[in-house]
Design a protein around this nucleic acid. Structure first.
Lengths: 357, 357
DNA sequence: ATTAACAACGAAAACGTTTTCGTGTTGACA
DNA sequence: TGTCAACACGAAAACGTTTTCGTTGTTAAT
């Protein structure tokens, strides 16, 4: 159980100075062929690896990026992480994750933990509680401390930074238009409360599609689920709400749901009530997760390309990190006018399966 | 865009020494009431936070643990991470994740990246390729460097460390016994190739249950899927294999599958072939993921309690980390005889749903 | 022979902490 | 008045690097 070997130990063992060892290992021309050989051989023998922490301290950058997401047991967020990890690793970065668990406080605690020098920048998606409180001071505070943030999916205008979002509006609209084009006359919407931006946008997309088809949106055909209580645990509540929804709107022949779970639950309830899918009722969901693919019938859905969102977020963040470096090398005093943040929109894609005609 | 404030800056600003500032902030009795107040006020005003990196370097511990898993877009692994993160955070640790993507090389690269001082210990589950190659030198190497490892789920005897596993054998046996007790006479098994330890153990559990019921295992009733090719992408291949399996074994009245995907696919194929579930064929899966819960019919399954696995792993690792600390304080020269690694077995639970009688 | 150039190496600072060990200034006490 | 704690604070080392700037000793040029 020996400690990891350091430059100092190599130096002592070979009776040279620390600087010589360091230079020899980096292949500096300053050191003679002989000593370089000797030192490199010794280092390889003892499997020397420079200490990341020391390097981080010296270089004032850690080469790791912090991710904070509301929930990891969630297909969409997992794919985003996968995307982030992919490009982060490719570009020499590590990834450290914190889970806010949809809690405002835990989001802050996690950010403070990481902001203390552990990472170079954040990639995050805002927790529901934070969205509800509309308190974004912790984001702006960290940005002001010089730590860049990239927001994805659940973003908000109040914080000024790079963002990667999905065209929720257009995606929803596309889905509803698909239902209309296959003959649906009474399309129900199952959505969340408005404070989650993506839910709101998808609702607007639904309304827009109807409007364009010159159909009036019937308020009765819109079911807003209160997901402030954890739905996963109260599946029966969800089912009951949807059942009541169907029963009080007998004419429904199409359903657009703003997420996978609502969609498959709607299918389940519909089948229970004796409807045939897609013959009597067609269903489209949002988020192409594992449920959509394996549901019966398989679910037509709007794919968000989570992995691509992650990749873009990571590229955006790392670009900015490495740009900041160069800027520090030159001597700009005030380049704030140059701070021009991007918002990248990832196109959605309608994946047609068996729940639609 | 100002840098984070440091002790040195506070010291200069308040015209005291760095040591004084440090002591004042930690509330040392050495410093007078007056200066302490002044310094603390100033620090709070400028939102001073000690630099984690500097602390890590000084204390030679990072208070972060590294997770390496084969795949993050996987319900089971996500729940494990959630468990790890939960207790890690509670005990003041951070979590940094690497994905091996089932690749031997990426596993090694990831470990080397993190072993360079970034973390205090590993929690990991072995990639399929590594299991296939049976090359575990990188694990033993890191352990010999003094960095503890906790293995979970996919473990292996060749590496000597703490482990957290599921009673795959017993879980499978329980499942099959359930099928037997509800009248199944010809139980099919859908499993993976043997090199994945968990698949092998579950297969053995299946065999044991049959044996105990004094039934002969029919080799034709065992379908081994080669999952070295990514199955997710080749869903049709899986379906075809299972369809052939059913067709060449008409008498099958029960199926035990070693994972969720195989189980729901089996249900889908069975239904396509005109069987009623659970009347004609009963199905039980392994891993209580999102698929099992929402399949139609909902799937009876063996729950592995991924979150608990994560929690236990984290506790095990952190216990060892903090134990190592104390030991370093005393002066034991040789305490290797004391190295007694634990293996914690998490009990599985049979969750009965609608795919069984 | 003197100087300039060069090759090969070492000393030291810096990154931001904590902690040990001084050191100088009080006040009390004999 | 002299001695000794107690008090309040500072200097410096250490963690492991990289890098700048010397400092030698040798060789080539004048």
């Amino acid at each position: 159980m020996k400690r990891k070997i350091t430059l100092k130990q190599i130096a002592k063992e070979l009776d040279v100075s620390i600087s010589t060892v360091s230079k020899a290992l980096s292949g500096s021309k300053e050191i003679s062929e002989d000593t370089t050989q000797k030192i490199q051989a010794f280092a390889k023998l003892y499997n020397y690896r420079p200490n990341n922490i020391a390097l981080s301290l010296k270089n004032r950058k850690t080469k790791t990026i912090g991710i904070i997401i509301p929930e990891i047991v969630h297909h969409f967020f997992s794919t985003v992480i996968r995307g982030i990890e992919l490009v982060a690793n490719k570009r020499g970065y590590n990834v450290i994750v914190g889970l806010s668990n949809e809690s405002f406080t835990k989001e802050i605690i996690n950010m403070e933990m990481l902001a203390g020098g552990s990472i170079d920048g954040f990639i995050l998606s805002i927790s529901k509680e934070t969205l509800l409180k509309q308190d974004y001071h912790h984001f702006n505070a960290t940005i002001n401390q010089g730590m860049p943030i990239v927001l994805f999916d659940r973003v908000v205008n109040e914080v000024d930074c790079d963002k990667v979002i999905v065209d929720d509006f257009k995606g929803a609209s596309k889905a509803v238009k698909k239902l209309l084009s296959t003959g649906c006359k009474n399309i129900g919407l199952i959505t969340t409360m408005d404070y989650v931006s993506v839910g709101r946008l998808r609702t607007q997309g639904y309304l827009e599609a109807l409007q364009e088809a010159e159909m009036n949106a019937d308020p009765n055909l819109i079911l807003k689920i209160d997901d402030s209580i954890n739905v996963e645990g109260h599946l029966d509540i969800l089912e009951n709400e949807i059942e009541r929804f169907f029963k009080s709107n007998k004419k429904i022949d199409g359903v657009f749901a703003v997420n996978e779970l609502y969609a498959v639950t709607a299918m389940k309830v519909a089948r229970k009530l004796g409807f045939k899918i897609p013959d009597d009722i067609q269903v489209i969901g949002f988020t192409d997760g594992v449920l959509s693919k394996h549901a019966t019938p398989s679910l037509t859905t709007v794919s968000q390309h989570g992995q691509k969102i992650g990749e873009q977020s990571a590229d955006l963040l790392i670009d900015r990190l490495e740009l900041d470096n160069e800027e520090n090398d030159m001597y700009f005093e005030e380049n704030e006018y140059e701070e021009h943040f991007k918002t990248i929109v990832i196109e959605t894609e309608l994946i047609e399966r068996d729940s639609t005609k």
